[in-house]
Every structure is written in structure tokens, then in C-alpha cells.
């Protein structure tokens, strides 16, 4: 599974670079518009180490942000699973909160919390929380009649059991959405760094953009992609492991 993720990424990246290089050759563009192989290789050797370290910095924030948003989405999903007034209120409030674009809220976050760790974390969590919430609410609000019926009839149903049944029955779906939200958390952190932070790969991309250096941006994309592929692969492996343990 991990290998597949990495292969897929390498294939897509190689395809993207090949298309760019083909355009460069066909149109006769200079290295300023699209860098050539030599320029890419030279830039990669120069900045790859630093960029990988930046990506790890970003990934750390993204992982924490994702954990926060998973917890938040689970909490709201559990609270909002019931078809009561309170459940509906929680769901509507959570949906409305997400209606505001993050880029519009980001400047306020940076003014309040500065351009450090907390702002990046908050933005990462906000960006990946909504798709998680939608899935969790969907899963938690959908009864598994075949199993739940037994516990209800015997009077043994508790909310913890209800949550556990619904989570277990939809573990595949949950794992997929959590792995997918890793991309969003990473993207959210990068956006935050690009807008105002002074660390991480988003900040490095911003500097490369100032310098009109597409080679650096392509190297940064490689570093982000490969790291994210490994992380997503690990998340999927973790999901399978949990499923196996629960099945015993």
C-alpha cells in the first residue's frame, strides 16, 4: 500500500515534468519560464535538503492540525448524530462556521496569534475539518439497523456502543477520509505559511515565487508530494491495522 502510493506519486510527478519539458522544447522557452533538466537537477541538489526539512516542519503542523480536526469532527459528529434540536443546532453551526473562506479569515488569525505555530495549526485544522465532519456526521447519523436492533431490544444500547458500532462498520470509509484529509491539512498549512508565516515549505515557496524561480517550486512540489505519499500510505496501513485489531 505504501509502495503503491509512492509509485503513483512518482508516476504523476514524472508525467507532469515531462509535459512541462515537452512544452519548453516545442515552444522554445527559456529556463526562466520553464527550467530545463540541468537547471532542475542543479536546483534539487542545492535546495532539496533544506526543502525536505521545511516539509517535515510543515507536516508536523499538518499532522497536529489533522489530529485536532479529527477529534473536533468526531466530537461534533457524535453530538450532532441525534435527530434532536441540539443535534441539528450543532450541525448547522458547524456547517456555517465553514462557510467563510479561510483566506479571508487568515489575516485575522495572524493578527490575533502572530505568524508562528498556532496560526498555522489553526488554519490547517480549519481546512481539513469540514470534509471530515461531513463524513463523520454522515456515518454517525446512519444507524446500522441489523446490529443496533439487537442491543436496543435487549436494552443494552449505550451511546458509546452506538458510536463504536457505527465507526467499526464504516471503518474503511473513515480511514479513507482521514487519509484524504491529510492532503487537505498539508495544503492548509502550506496556504497559511504562504500567506503569513515565516517557516515551513509554504514560506519557501513564497520566497521562490518572489525570485521567479520555477525550478525551486518544482523541487518543493516533489518534496511535498513524496512526503505526503509516505504519510498517506502510513495512515492507510494504520487504518488496516486498527481494523484487524478490532476484528479479533
Amino acid at each position: 500500500m505504501l509502495h503503491r502510493r509512492i509509485y503513483q506519486f512518482l508516476l504523476i510527478y514524472a508525467l507532469g515534468i515531462s509535459i512541462l519539458l515537452a512544452i519548453k522544447v516545442l515552444v522554445g522557452l527559456s529556463d526562466y519560464v520553464i527550467p530545463g533538466w540541468e537547471s532542475l537537477w542543479h536546483t534539487a541538489r542545492e535546495v532539496m535538503g533544506r526543502y525536505l526539512s521545511d516539509v517535515m516542519n510543515t507536516l508536523t503542523v499538518a499532522v497536529i492540525g489533522q489530529v485536532v480536526s479529527v477529534i473536533l469532527a468526531l466530537l461534533i459528529g457524535i453530538l450532532g448524530r441525534q435527530a434532536t434540536w441540539f443535534g441539528s443546532f450543532i450541525k448547522v453551526a458547524a456547517y456555517n462556521f465553514q462557510a467563510y473562506p479561510i483566506v479571508a479569515i487568515a489575516p485575522i488569525i495572524f493578527i490575533l496569534f502572530g505568524d508562528g505555530f498556532l496560526s498555522r495549526l489553526l488554519i490547517a485544522a480549519m481546512i481539513c475539518y469540514f470534509p471530515l465532519l461531513l463524513t463523520v456526521v454522515g456515518i454517525m447519523a446512519e444507524p446500522i439497523y441489523d446490529i443496533e436492533h439487537f442491543y436496543r431490544q435487549t436494552g443494552r444500547m449505550r451511546w458509546q456502543l452506538e458510536v463504536k458500532i457505527r465507526a467499526f462498520e464504516n471503518l474503511g470509509k473513515l480511514t479513507t477520509v482521514i487519509a484524504g484529509s491529510a492532503t487537505l491539512a498539508m495544503a492548509g498549512t502550506i496556504v497559511a505559511e504562504f500567506i503569513a508565516a515565516s517557516a515551513g515549505i509554504g514560506y519557501s515557496i513564497r520566497i521562490a515565487l518572489y525570485q521567479s524561480d520555477l525550478a525551486k517550486i518544482l523541487v518543493a512540489l516533489f518534496a511535498i508530494g513524496i512526503t505526503l505519499s509516505v504519510y498517506q500510505g502510513l495512515l492507510e496501513l494504520g487504518g488496516n491495522l486498527v481494523k484487524r485489531v478490532w476484528s479479533r
Binding site: 527559456s30 529556463d31 526562466y32 519560464v33 525570485q211 521567479s212 524561480d213
Partner: peptide, 13 residues
């Protein structure tokens, strides 16, 4: 000017 010089260094016509 820095954009111009960087572009010139990369062969931009």
C-alpha cells in the same frame, strides 16, 4: 531589475 537580471541569466530573450 532583479527579475530582469535573473531572467537574463536563464536565457530569457
Amino acid at each position: 531589475a532583479d527579475q530582469v537580471i535573473q531572467a537574463a541569466a536563464k536565457g530569457a530573450p
